[in-house]
């Protein structure tokens, strides 16, 4: 019977009452896991670049100005707030904030630029980064130090296919 169905529908509406929130004057509370705009903490960042290598939107750039200064730039244009950068960051230097009202006429409002002073090796004076999680995997057990020759090893490329395991180590002399 159609009339009863109409009455039922009226009941559904009446029971609901008013549900609209007075946004933007007041917004619904955000859950703790909410993924808003990522915020980079320069004091924690070690400049490993793991976030840049894992960003699906390619929104994080790494640029080495010189030995000691590495620039990390978050572009904020087509970032989808997926949170992969925060996932892979070994130092938890990236937090997915609760900012979501990010519409702006000036892109600089969202962008972030970190000028990172990289640690330098006390012996050779060149900067080094701690290996990212990914690099640790790829190094397959190689440590940096070459005990036999008592020399500092800057980087091993042993993970590259078709390369000999022993002679491929770039060695920084004292």
């Amino acid at each position: 019977m159609s009339l009863t169905s109409k009455l039922q529908e009226v009941l559904v509406c009446l029971r609901a009452g008013r549900v609209t929130l007075p946004y933007p004057a007041q917004s619904a509370p955000l859950p703790p896991r909410f993924r808003g705009r990522p915020i980079f903490d320069a004091s924690k960042c070690i400049g490993c670049g793991g976030c840049a290598s894992n960003c699906p939107a390619r929104e994080i750039l790494v640029y080495d100005v010189c030995q000691e200064i590495r620039i990390l730039k978050y572009l904020g244009r087509r970032c989808t707030y997926c949170g992969r950068c925060a996932d892979v960051c070994p130092e938890k230097a990236i937090t997915m904030s609760h900012e979501f009202e990010t519409a702006t006429g000036t892109i600089g409002d969202i962008q972030q630029r970190l000028d990172l002073f990289m640690s330098t090796c006390q012996r050779c004076g060149r900067c080094f980064t701690e290996p990212s999680k990914l690099e640790e995997l790829k190094l397959k057990g190689y440590r940096y130090d070459d005990l036999e020759n008592e020399r500092w090893i800057f980087r091993s490329q042993a993970y590259l296919e078709g390369q000999p395991v022993v002679d491929d180590i770039e060695i920084e002399l004292d």
Binding site: V19, P31, R33, F34, R35, Y81, C82, G83
Partner: peptide, 24 residues
């Protein structure tokens, strides 16, 4: 009414995944 009834589903998805729609 359908949209009103739907809304809590979006909120719980947001609580679990951090986003209403793109759960990543």
């Amino acid at each position: 009414q359908a949209f009103r009834i739907r809304e809590p589903v979006m909120w719980i998805a947001e609580k679990i995944s951090g986003n209403r729609k793109t759960y990543a």
